[in-house]
Simulated scan of single mutants.
Amino acid sequence: MTDHRTTTEPSRRPGDEQPLLAIDGLSVDFRLPTSVVHAVQDVSLHVHAGETLAVVGESGSGKSAAALSVLRLNPSPPCVYTGGEIRFDGRDLLKLSERELGRIRGRDIAMVFQDPMTCLDPLQRVGGQVAEVLRLHTGMSRAEAAEAALAALDEVGIPDPAARYRQYPHELSGGLRQRVMIATALVARPRVLIADEPTTALDVTVQRQILDLLVTLQHRHDMAVVLITHDLAVVAETADRVAVMNQGKVVETGDVLDVFDRPADPYTRTLLAATPRLEAA
């Protein structure tokens, strides 16, 4: 059997077109008052339309810093992009102006973050925040955006969405806030979704529902998904390919089954050894 693993870029399947999103040689530093942290070092990650790429690694491995770099959401300062490029539709996102990038954020590339309370406006009703994405990027009228936002809240499984639409974030549980954030990310039907631990606040049953929803929408709209996670069981169930990061570098990448069955890098083997067996007893 051909081994597709490589430490420089993901495997490509015969007949694949160019990647929808391509990170090549990305390096990111955080220049602090007393030190420089090389958070991301020469990282290359590619994802195609309709494909899920999972990026795994322990805390501090650089996976979230790499993901945030796609939309230039790392705080600057102290963040400095020192090398590489991030191409979407043939354009290097690192070279776009803030105005140009603003047209892409939330419309073509959307992101679900770990903590919804850092992303939702505490002074605005949640339904209005979902509708605002549509009014900003699609030109919908207020009434049209409100109707679509209500449907989005229902789609992610929020009970009594009409009532929740009028509530503020602090009136919702952590799980419901997470669902609102997912609805906000998906309502404009982005071509790429970056999900940074998207089910952190949810219990196991709801986590499964949300992951199933993401897969359904991905297939329906041929959406590329970059899934940042520490949960290897989620990776095994949802991802096509996996990239393993350690100390700011990609140490292994390939098809999920190949990497899980025959890990080539010692760090990958350590991660798998520390995880409960994924197959049934």
Rank of each mutant, 00 (worst) to 15 (best):
I210H: 05
A273C: 00
Q218G: 08
A183L: 08
S59F: 03
R87V: 10
C79M: 04
V250H: 02
R105T: 03
L136Q: 13
L68P: 03
S27Y: 04
V112L: 07
L211R: 13
Y81D: 00
T275S: 14
M140G: 00
Q218N: 13
T268G: 13
P10Y: 06
M245F: 09
V180F: 08
A131T: 11
E98A: 11
V37H: 06
S69G: 05
Y165Q: 09
R107F: 08
G25M: 07
R189S: 11
L186C: 13
Q18D: 15
S173H: 03
S59T: 14
N246K: 15
T268K: 05
L272W: 05
T268F: 08
Q209Y: 01
G174M: 11
V130M: 11
A143K: 15
R241V: 08
S173M: 09
C79W: 01
R277E: 12
D265Y: 09
L232K: 13
Y165A: 01
L272P: 06
L68T: 08
V226Y: 04
S59H: 09
T238R: 15
R125K: 15
R87T: 13
T216D: 15
R91D: 04
A162L: 08
E252L: 05
E197G: 06
V204I: 14
P10E: 08
D255R: 15
G175V: 02
V80Q: 14
V235S: 07
V259L: 06
G62F: 05
Q167T: 11
D231K: 12
D240T: 13
A49Y: 01
M117I: 13
M181A: 08
R103Q: 14
A151L: 10
L271C: 11
P276G: 01
L211H: 12
G25Y: 03
I109R: 11
V215K: 15
E252C: 12
T7C: 00
R142E: 11
S69Q: 09
P10H: 05
Q167K: 15
L45W: 10
R5Q: 15
G57R: 10
R277I: 01
R91F: 04
L32S: 05
R262T: 13
P169F: 09
S97M: 07
V80M: 07
R103I: 00
S173I: 07
G57W: 04
D121Y: 02
H38C: 04
P190H: 06
V56R: 03
G157E: 06
L101T: 04
G102P: 00
A49G: 12
A54H: 10
D196L: 06
R142H: 13
E58S: 02
V259P: 06
Q41H: 10
S44Y: 02
P10L: 04
A151V: 09
H219S: 12
V251S: 03
